[in-house]
Design a protein around this nucleic acid. Structure first.
Lengths: 166, 166
DNA sequence: TGATTTTGCTTTAAGCATAAACTTTTGCGA
DNA sequence: TCGCAAAAGTTTATGCTTAAAGCAAAATCA
């Protein structure tokens, strides 16, 4: 998975590491195990997470999206989107058409078949996630949500130095 | 990154989704942004996260590890380890030797060069992580750590149904 | 208008990851 | 001891991902 970095030891401590590393590894571990489970479930239905993501984005934009818009929405590279969309198009799940006002752009939309397929997958996806979080009470979920918000802010702030002098 | 699934909308809510999905996406987002930053930093030093992981595992096992042991430690497939270790060996960062008691096994160890390289990378790695978590106070970190522990337990429990009748 | 830059997308090369098939070696049981 | 199953690694096929190079269309601007 290319994710692990270092492993927690059995006593929950890191060899030579500190608390931050331990926290990061736990965060990574949670995210990874959930993601793997979702991938596996989707694979059982002959789909993948990236394809699901693309379909989810298109489902929320019935008017269609350009390749670049998809790329921005999903935070993946342009070439990546090309690949995914072409695959989905070959399967008949999305339709491509030239943009009339801009000859460079391709508009991507879910086909009825694609929308139906996503409808089913999406419902299941939600159930899978729900099941994995079921062990947390409402208060825990709210607290976790808030803390992750703080963390996100912290990470973003720590990266600002790169943009400072621009 | 193949991770996103669905996107949070600007108001922080999910189209047609529920709180669990929102929480999952925020967790995924945090994990992904941190991981991307680490990957980028390592790339600037001509390394990668998977290679760093392998070296970290070997650093904690000076006696050496077999390929399979590495595979288990890092939770990645066997073929994957083959690839990574051979690359590291070609760079002179790890050394391979046949296991005397088992002709099938290959023992993998850091070379002095590899240990020195890891020493440097590891120190930097720790600083990067520290910086990203710097915005969280000690209490927040402890709370987050505990909540993620609960989440992990929840995820594991929710997967037990597969093993129940075995 | 004409030249330059930007934008949208594709292609290519490299790396990471898995599953499945395969080889070799080991170990175990009849 | 023979035969066969299990284990260690490798290889192959497939897919995701990025960065970088490239092409064509559009926009900018002198």
């Amino acid at each position: 998975m290319s994710k692990s970095v270092i492993r927690e030891k059995h006593d929950g401590h890191i060899s030579g590491g500190k608390a931050d590393i331990r926290l990061w590894l736990r965060l990574l571990g949670c995210s990874t195990v959930i993601e793997k489970r979702l991938r596996r479930k989707l694979a059982e239905r002959s789909s993948t997470l990236p394809r699901f993501d693309v379909m989810a984005a298109l489902e929320r934009h019935p008017e269609g999206l350009t390749m670049s818009a998809l790329s921005r929405q999903l935070f993946v590279s342009n070439g990546n989107i090309t690949h995914l969309v072409h695959w989905l198009a070959k399967e008949g799940l999305v339709a491509l058409k030239q943009c009339s006002r801009d000859g460079r752009s391709t508009i991507t939309q879910l086909t009825p078949k694609g929308a139906a397929a996503f409808e089913v997958l999406s419902r299941e996806h939600h159930q899978w996630v729900e099941a994995m979080f079921a062990g947390l009470g409402v208060e825990d979920r709210n607290a976790l949500f808030a803390l992750l918000g703080k963390l996100r802010a912290s990470v973003e702030e720590s990266g600002e130095e790169n943009v400072r002098a621009v």
